[in-house]
Each structure stands twice: as C-alpha cells, then as structure tokens.
C-alpha cells in the first residue's frame, strides 16, 4: 500500500495564493440533512457565509487512502486555519456521511469528536435515509456503489472515488480534490486564494 500524498510533506511549493484562478465549476447543491444532534436542516444552511471544504465520507470506511485521508487532511486544514488570523472564523469544514444507516447523528458525533477542535467550525452531517441522500450525491456527482452479498444484504462497505469540494461564499464549487490531489497545504492555499478575491 502506497500512502496518498496527503499524508506526507507536500513535494512542491504551491503557487502563491491569489496568483491563480479557481474558475467556478457550478452551483453547490442543496438537500435535507441532519446534524449530530439529530436536528433537521438544509445543506445550504451550512454554505454561503464562509468558504467551505466539503467531503463525503462514511465512518466505517477502512481504505486508508479514502475517507480517512479526507478526515486527516481536513484536520490539517483545521490546524492551519486556527493558526492563521486571516483565515480563522472564515472557513467551515463539512464532513457529510453517505451511509445514513450506520452513521446516525450520535455515531457521527462520536466520530467527529475525535477530530474537531472545540473552537472550530467543523460540522458533521448525515441524512434520514438513502432517499434523502441519493439526490445530494447525484447533484455533487459523487458516485458510490454499496456492496451487497449474494443474499442482498448490505455489507457495510462502499466503493467510491474520493472527492472533496471547495465551495465559496456564493455556493459555487471552485475546486474538486481526489486522492492524488488532496493535501492540506494545497487546500489552505486555495482557501486563501478564495478569501483574497
């Protein structure tokens, strides 16, 4: 197993923040969501007022270069933002589960408590059901295959291409990162670029 670049030092000097463009890639979709207290809301309630990094995960994901990578990198982003007065208070992290069956609000809350600093705006969201989840995944083009056994029983695992989204204050998607691309330094650089616009 080769670890993703996001677990190691960035091998290159990223371009100077603000010196490059992040052209809009389309609107970030809305949908019905649950927070870790089980309170129902809209995904758009969490988008628009801050630059946001959104990742789709499930807490039982075992592929080290999948969801754990996303959470590891977002943890690094959290640290960098807390250390930078120019960013602090202007960035939100969203970890969105695509397993409503296992990732109940309380389960997701316990998962999030392992990573979230008490003074940081890192939200963990789930949904009531597959029916509420599906249109959100479709809108973000986040493709997931649920794994079933021969009797049709859900195995609790999913196949997916890791995607993490950078979303601006106008709820526009401005970048998408996958396993080979995702690194805290790059994401923070992009956040600085967005907030300097």
């Amino acid at each position: 197993m080769v670890l993703a670049p996001g677990y190691e030092e960035l091998e290159f000097e990223p371009p100077v923040a603000g010196s490059y463009l992040l052209p809009p890639m389309g609107a970030a979709a809305d949908g019905s969501v649950l927070d870790t207290a089980g309170v129902q809301g809209r995904l758009h309630d969490y988008l628009g007022d801050k630059a946001t990094v959104l990742s789709f995960i499930f807490t039982t994901c075992s592929d080290v270069n999948g969801c754990p990578l996303a959470t590891y990198v977002m943890s690094g982003v959290q640290t960098a933002v807390l250390d930078d007065p120019a960013l602090d208070g202007k960035v939100r992290l969203l970890s969105f589960s695509f397993d409503p069956e296992k990732d109940t609000p309380s389960a997701l809350g316990q998962y999030g408590d392992q990573f979230r600093s008490a003074d940081f705006d890192w939200q963990f969201l789930t949904t009531h059901s597959e029916q509420e989840l599906r249109p959100i995944l479709d809108a973000y083009d986040q493709w997931v295959i649920r794994d079933y056994d021969e009797a049709g029983q859900y195995l609790g695992t999913m196949s997916h291409v890791l995607r993490v989204y950078l979303i601006d204050q106008d709820r526009q998607i401005r970048n998408i990162y996958s396993t080979s691309f995702l690194h805290a330094d790059t994401v923070v650089n992009d956040l600085r670029t967005l907030l300097a616009e």
Binding site: V2, L3, A4, P5, D63, N65, G66, I145, D147, Y148, D149, E150, L155, T157, S159, H160, V161, L162, S178, T179, S180, F181
Partner: peptide
Amino acid sequence: IQMLRAALVLLMAVIAPAALADETCMSPY
C-alpha cells in the same frame, strides 16, 4: 462478493505514484 471486492480495489486504486498500466497511458487520477 469477490466481484464487488474487485470493484472496490479498482475504485480505490486512484493513488498516482505506484505503477498504474492503456491502462498504462491514462490519467493517474
């Protein structure tokens, strides 16, 4: 089950550096 595990391997195998093969000539992503 084996087939689905295979799919899992395939879809998770998006990390660039370690030898990926026309298969050898495409995007590392």
